[in-house]
Write a protein that binds this DNA or RNA. Structure first.
Lengths: 184, 184
DNA sequence: ATCGGAAGCGGAGTCCGTTTCCAGATTAAC
DNA sequence: GTTAATCTGGAAACGGACTCCGCTTCCGAT
């Protein structure tokens, strides 16, 4: 009748260690090898794979953490109708700059258009973003036809600019944000 | 004293075959394996690697072809000061849509910021692009501070949007092009 | 026309990162 | 304390890019 037994304490500890090590290493170089992550976490590769079916899943789990952090920021600072979307995008740019692996997570997440089982944090983020958009539009500082999809599009671009280092992402935002101003 | 002797006829034939096969296969799927390309070209893997030191070099050679084609288009249709830059970006979007591998070439090319030994076609393309920008600016349809780097930035983004299929690249351009209009 | 050897060829084999597998160690439940 | 499920480490399998080298083909000198 009882459903499951409590998960083992050592297992949870190991999972946390893996996430911690991965977060630190992947922020620096998005191509760190799994055995290296395992080594730093003080576990075997097998343990990493027990917790995360493959590399992508691990990166995704870390991305979920970031998404939650970003959602919290957005809830606090981007809902006042004073160009919250602009502030949101700038913040995303900053976060991306400090986490090499986040970009690849964003790009694969985007690739799997819509249908995929989106994570909780990402869903939450989408909700907050929609509110920020609505607030800006009500205040007349954002074009009326701007959608969540549009902002996602820009986040994807921002991500690719930061990842490839192909130019100044702030300059990119400067240009892109002009495109989001209300039509005359 | 004489520098090099003429390359063997069969070698040139094989090189051409590899390029042809690669162009066809990579346009469809940017992750085709080299042995497959070799098989379709009717040569061994070794021959592919003789002509192109690595996968990237092969993709780059194909990209150079595309760049030359795009430069030709731009020379004919984008220098009249009538929003040539807009037409240029739209054309690049179309080409990217039909060639999956071009995106990765563009992204690695951009990653190697400036210093790298740029290909001839790319250099040529940059020249034409600069002319198109100047023409549009003279006609007052493009913001005065727009640089070649800005357009590169947008091309990089365009590329990532097309590659990841994360949204409608036409919509992206619509937004981005607003940002390129002259400041009021 | 023929022949020596440089240039080119193919594909088996190396390398290197990811992922799987499982015998043994560890833990929760009783 | 016993039991049985859970978790562990790391050796080995796998997959794909790239290298190496003995054999073949072409070229141009004779």
């Amino acid at each position: 009748m009882s459903t499951e037994r409590k998960p083992r304490a050592d297992a949870e500890r190991n999972r946390a260690r893996v996430l911690e090590a991965a977060r630190a290493l992947l922020a620096e170089h998005d191509d760190v090898q799994l055995p290296e992550i395992a080594r730093v976490a003080g576990v075997g590769v097998g343990t990493v794979y027990r917790n995360f079916p493959d590399r992508r899943a691990l990166v995704e789990a870390l991305a979920e953490q970031r998404f939650a952090e970003i959602a919290e920021y957005a809830r606090k600072r981007c809902l006042d109708g004073k160009s919250g979307v602009k502030r949101y995008l700038r913040h995303v740019g900053e976060v991306l700059s400090g986490d090499r692996a986040l970009s690849s997570a964003i790009e694969t997440a985007r690739g799997s258009a819509g249908s995929e089982p989106r994570g909780d944090a990402l869903a939450e983020l989408e909700t907050v973003l929609a509110q920020a958009i609505a607030a800006d539009q009500a205040a007349g500082v954002l074009r009326a036809d701007c959608t969540v999809g549009d902002v996602y599009l820009l986040v994807g671009c921002l991500s690719s600019v930061v990842r490839t280092g192909s130019g100044d992402w702030r300059r990119f935002l400067e240009l892109a944000l002009e495109g989001l101003l209300p039509r005359d």
